[in-house]
Design a protein around this nucleic acid. Structure first.
Lengths: 336, 336
DNA sequence: GTGCCCTATGTGAGCGCTAACACTACCCGA
DNA sequence: TCGGGTAGTGTTAGCGCTCACATAGGGCAC
């Protein structure tokens, strides 16, 4: 159907050189005379030549593509990560191929990875925040560069992760510093490492202050589940401070508190996690923890590239990105 | 670095056939004996053979990859669209390569498209909601299957789009039906077609009811701009109904109204657009318009595939997906 | 001048696959 | 009996690149 564009030999003929010289110019090899280089570039421009990535991938064994495996790319975190990853990869001359999966189980992950391998991607980034993904990863071919993001800290796989524990600790500490006796926590789904880390940080901050952690409320990231948890918390007079595992949970909690006439922050303080762009416009503006997705993307890609360039095993195995607390109006000292 | 996996000839040798027969099995050609097919499949499984997409792309001239060009994939709309597109493409055996761009200007778009063309993608989907993107599209090579989503209705390029006009008309009509004398509108950025369509629908509904549209408030999709517009609207006693171009604008408006002590929906009704998952947990739950991103993705991909299979020009040139109104608590009859 | 290295370029092979065609049975109707 | 289809399989030739090597022409030390 499509008329095939010019190939390297066409450029070579027009420039009066061999195809190999064209290849050298394209790949920035040193030993090409400046004059020749210019002639080749002119020929490339004149013909509108575009190198064929498939041919290059065939002979080199890898394409300039990085495969990303992610679950729900509609969630704010994964979406931001994906966008940042794509941006960073483009700067390094790589394209990003997305393989989103419905479930992060063994089969789905393997299938997505297989699809990427079939295209001979240069490396794979797995945004694998749940336990079940880990098993799949260990059974993967060992010869393909791989980095996991927000994955299992226990597994021997290169990992970049937001420091969930530190973020949660900061959030909890912020509430304690405001004078609250204890802090309640509405968590994310229990099989996500992000949740586990945030729970751990919350617990650690309380224990460090000599406080026995109150019962945990289980949510699933959604505002809906935050709302349900909020309905329970709203009826407990002893609750004065709540840390939610993400901002959408916080939104649900705020709604529930509002319905029960519990004022935020006058009666109850709330802190979220993620700093979604709208968080500053919740009622009231939400104090939250902001992960640096750009930094995560940059670290992951760098880790991946070092594997690609210097063989598997080169470079660091673990990198942690510290989040920052963003203070807004949803926190105040407890009354009395 | 990576140990190269088995190739087609290895499978052929093990199965005792020629590589071509393996190819036939892989591509589902009819003239292969059942027994042979099974033998080949067994050999494939035994060796863990994975076809090399690059080689196939080289010889066929196209890879099983669809390129997507999008701007801000962090926004809810584009992110949902991208996810739906990826899901649908996977079902058809295609991978999706994302080329997100910072700006939707001529240069950025062209560059992103070039990158995709270098990889010999089978087709390109451009999520091109702004005017400046249109110019770039017309200068693109004519021999590449291309579909635009939410693009310029005026340009002669295959287009799938949410029926913004109908959605906005429904939202506005919903407010009029509740008894409001007029409806104010907080729009998206003026260079987005989505904005233009929603403005048009809003205006059309008012005019059809014999109402002179009030002045337009310009926003930029963000809750921040919604908040700024809301601060003005809150001080105008005559305002009883507001339609915002998306849910995040609505969130900002709700915040401003709340701060000024204007109750929603008792004093002022608000309708948004997008139905983000959190919309049901705004204060109050937001009545909004829900575009069907899955349907848009399906339509785009179908349009693209029909171009790929039957040559450019095959299939429909335009398809419009009707959104639905989701009624919640943010709308009530006006007081007086 | 001879030998040597170093720079700039060309030549040939082959990556793994598909498309086109060639070939071999075998069946069927005249 | 024989031509001619038709199902099943093999053979060959590239697709457009990169890699490894061959080659040509200087410059420079001795």
């Amino acid at each position: 159907m499509a008329v095939h564009g010019p190939a390297m030999t066409d450029v070579a003929r027009l420039a009066g050189v061999s195809h190999q010289t064209v290849s050298r110019v394209l790949n920035g090899h040193p030993n090409v005379r400046e004059q020749t280089r210019l002639r080749v570039r002119a020929a490339i421009a004149e013909l509108g030549y575009r190198p064929n990535g498939a041919a290059r991938a065939l002979v080199t064994g890898r394409s300039q593509v990085i495969g990303v495996v992610a679950q729900n790319t509609t969630l704010y975190g994964p979406a931001s990560l994906l966008a940042a990853l794509e941006q960073t990869a483009a700067e390094e001359g790589f394209a990003v191929s997305v393989g989103s999966v419905r479930n992060l189980d063994h089969r789905s992950i393997s299938a997505a990875v297989e699809r990427h391998l079939a295209h001979r991607v240069a490396g794979i980034v797995v945004i694998a925040p749940v336990e079940s993904a880990g098993e799949a990863l260990e059974r993967l071919p060992k010869d393909v560069p791989l980095v996991t993001v927000d994955g299992d800290p226990q597994r021997p796989v290169p990992l970049v992760t937001v420091d969930q524990v530190a973020g949660a600790r900061a959030a909890t500490q912020h509430l304690l510093d405001a004078g609250h006796r204890t802090v309640w926590h509405v968590s994310g789904p229990s099989d996500w490492f992000d949740s586990a880390g945030r729970i751990e940080g919350w617990r650690a901050a309380l224990l460090a202050a000599g406080i026995d952690p109150p019962p945990l409320m289980h949510g699933d990231w959604s505002a809906a589940s935050g709302y349900r948890c909020g309905q329970m918390l709203a009826r407990m007079p002893e609750v004065t401070a709540i840390f939610t595992a993400n901002d959408h949970l916080a939104l649900g909690v705020l709604r529930a508190l509002h319905e029960f006439g519990r004022r935020v922050p006058a009666e109850i303080s709330v802190v979220g996690f993620d700093d979604v762009p709208e968080a500053a416009y919740f009622i009231p503006p939400l104090t939250t923890v902001r992960p640096d997705f750009d930094a995560v993307a940059r670290a992951s890609l760098q880790m991946l590239l070092s594997q690609i360039e210097s063989g598997i095993g080169g470079g660091a195995l673990r990198q942690t990105i510290a989040p920052t607390l963003v203070a807004r109006d949803s926190v105040a000292p407890p009354r009395h």
